[in-house]
């Protein structure tokens, strides 16, 4: 995950408390989405950014997880094209594998 984004997420989690923050990903690929999910739960696996060795344990979802709660018109305008293109099931599975790990708290 981008180092600047790691810094901002860390700052937001510290300011508001991890229990009050939810991370919503928009990655286009399972592996990359998984890496982002791992970064905000267990910590930066590349040990390059501010979240290296920092386990925030934030609840993390991909936008594809949240279709039920997004306004239908907004979904149609913003997401429906990518929904047709991407491997939705694979992405959801990969992100869930990090969200559901015990260490993610």
């Amino acid at each position: 995950m981008d180092l600047e984004n790691q810094r901002r997420i860390k700052e937001i989690a510290e300011k508001h408390g991890a229990e009050n923050v939810v991370v919503v990903l928009g990655g286009g690929e399972a592996e990359a989405s998984g890496l982002a999910a791992e970064t905000v739960t267990a910590g930066d696996p590349t040990y390059a950014g501010p979240l290296a060795g920092v386990s925030l344990g934030l609840p993390v979802y991909h936008i594809f997880d949240l279709k039920q709660i997004v306004d239908e018109a907004v979904w149609e305008e913003q997401i429906s094209m990518m929904e047709m293109v991407l491997d939705v099931d694979e992405i959801i599975k990969e992100v869930a594998s990090f969200r559901d790990r015990p260490s993610s708290g």
């Binding site: 286009g28 690929e29 592996e31 990359a32 890496l35 094209m81 990518m82 047709m84 293109v85």
Partner: peptide
């Protein structure tokens, strides 16, 4: 980890 960028574009245009 950035995927096949050209192919992703063609898929999006098709969609």
């Amino acid at each position: 980890g950035a995927g096949n960028v050209a192919e992703a574009n063609f898929k999006m245009i098709a969609a």
